[in-house]
Design a protein around this nucleic acid. Structure first.
Lengths: 160, 160
DNA sequence: CCTAAACCCTGTAGCAACTACAGGTTCAAG
DNA sequence: CTTGAACCTGTAGTTGCTACAGGGTTTAGG
């Protein structure tokens, strides 16, 4: 309702949503955030609405939704009279992915624990860890660790 | 012992280790695999040792070890009389990371389940999922989902 | 021996989702 | 009015590959 004047700088906006100014510019660039109004000198100025939108984005990202999923969620939340089936479906789908990642990650943990438990701490020559890594048959094959890709490795960048 | 003649083509090597020829060239490029010998026409030819090495790499990668960690593991496995403490430490460190990812992923799953359970299926306006995403305070804050980054999202590419 | 298919080569660009500069401009406090 | 923090654009880097384009090589069959 209340359209606050755009007085918030990009740094303050970023701080309030817990991210970096670069990330804000990036979100604008890929169209998650609308183009901000500018001062005469060309600097971006935001209002409270932008804070809400960015917070939503960051929060959804923290939940593990991909940028494309966030884009859909934003589009849906912009249409309040829509039926929320799609939102529900998106969240369900995401939950399924999370659950399958959880299972494989748990299998991986078990295998790592087993490896570590069996390593007697001698020479590399007889190291159980190296052996297991060398030979797939030494794994508990029931609970196959299905490839790090689908488990998700931490992406390169982590925010400080 | 038996130094097999290098007769295996890059495609066959890749197939035996469960990856793509491009991946093999990439590993060579970043120095995980030694430079292969070549035919007169310039094509790479490999022996059984390369199969073992590549299999080790793929397996360690499947375990979620980063390429840099794999590089260290390879260096260690190349020195059989070394004490395997470092291997052990690397694996332990990795296990810790896996466990912390597991915990956050579990918290995330709970939150998603809660969100889904509370969504009554009406209009977006009153959608519990959108609400939770909009407002951090609606989360169970004890078991905070700590950012998708550290949970790891599935990287873009998945092998077929 | 010849040809066609299957394989291989290099090099570059692309994916996600940002982060990190460089080299300059603008704003706000004192 | 000066200073320094904040901001601007644009490009390149990160991880771990994958996907081309535009060629050359190998090999099996006839």
């Amino acid at each position: 309702m209340s359209e606050s004047h755009p007085t918030i700088g990009i740094g303050a906006l970023a701080r309030r949503a817990g991210c970096q100014p670069e990330t804000v510019r990036y979100y604008e660039h890929i169209g998650l955030l609308h183009e901000a109004s500018r001062t005469e000198g060309g600097q971006r100025r935001y209002g409270e609405e932008a804070v809400r939108r960015l917070t939503f984005i960051r929060h959804a990202r923290d939940f593990g939704f991909s940028v494309e999923a966030v884009r859909e969620l934003l589009a849906m939340s912009d249409r309040p009279d829509m039926c929320c089936d799609e939102v529900d479906a998106l969240a369900k789908h995401h939950l399924e992915e999370v659950e399958s990642r959880l299972q494989r990650l748990a299998a991986l943990r078990d295998e790592l624990q087993r490896m570590l438990g069996e390593c007697a701490g001698g020479k590399v020559e007889s190291c159980r860890i190296i052996e297991v890594l060398s030979d797939h048959r030494l794994c508990d094959s029931d609970t196959a660790h299905g490839g790090a890709h689908d488990l998700g490795e931490p992406p390169a960048a982590r925010r400080s």
